[in-house]
Design a protein around this nucleic acid. Structure first.
Lengths: 132, 132
DNA sequence: ACTTGACCTTGCCAGCATGGCAAGGTTGAT
DNA sequence: ATCAACCTTGCCATGCTGGCAAGGTCAAGT
């Protein structure tokens, strides 16, 4: 099949597929005489794997590692687990940070009377960086 | 003071300050005869405002709006409150998404025995995209 | 055979926000 | 005079994706 159909079936865009090939995440696709990329079921499988990994928030670099592990019959599942764990830690870290930002903002918002008067504790805090 | 000191005192980098000026977030700084940018206490105040806003997760575009409101004596605090609320909503949305990703991954990790055997439910799930 | 439209190709530019490096000018102290 | 520390501008890189352009190819309808 051509790239368009591969894109539709995998949920990626044609652009992304070409990009992934260009950065070496995918091995170069077979080509027709006229230069069209051709994909088979195996390739589609790989594309779907990438799509799913991206949806789970893995970076392309991490996806690369996962692909390597996936294609390595000798892999230890511990390796994969470690990678997933690391990603979970990163997610938790990010979640904590965002939560703190939200709480700070929430505090500020609650102290703002929010009417037409110009006096605004939020801006005051942004100025001074203290006393929320 | 020069840009380096302004950077140190505000917590931004000199590079960022120049960038903010180039995109119009900051008005052009005064220059010495030799072309060095010169900052006064007012400018420093503005830089600190930006730094604090960025730390709270506002995008540069949002910081621009906040700056306008900050410098507008006629502003209604309701405007600021609305902007902060919107940002809180975005943060909550992001937190929810990341939390879902983490939970999915956590499930996968828990089903992976994580030893030297190659059989790995995480990779199996990434393949199929179903049955976590 | 010819046109049309949908598809494919490559390549370049855009964004976010920041860092890095280079080549050159300025300042201030030794 | 020299040297270090600073400043200037400019370009490139990141990660990931979208957009647009100019051109080639394919399949179907006329």
């Amino acid at each position: 099949m051509n790239i368009g159909q591969a894109a539709r079936l995998s949920g990626l865009s044609a652009k992304m597929i070409r990009y992934y090939e260009s950065i070496g995440l995918l091995k170069a696709a077979h080509r027709t005489d006229s230069g069209y990329r051709v994909y088979g079921d195996d390739d589609l499988h790989t594309l779907a794997f990438i799509k799913r990994s991206r949806d789970l928030g893995f970076s392309l670099e991490e996806v690369g590692k996962l692909l390597t592990l996936w294609q390595d019959r000798q892999r230890a599942s511990a390796d994969v687990k470690a990678l997933a764990r690391q990603h979970i830690d990163e997610l938790n870290q990010k979640i904590r940070e965002l939560g703190q930002l939200r709480d700070t903002l929430q505090d500020l918002v609650e102290h703002c009377h929010g009417d037409h008067r110009p006096d605004c504790p939020i801006l005051k805090n942004l100025e001074s960086g203290c006393c929320p």
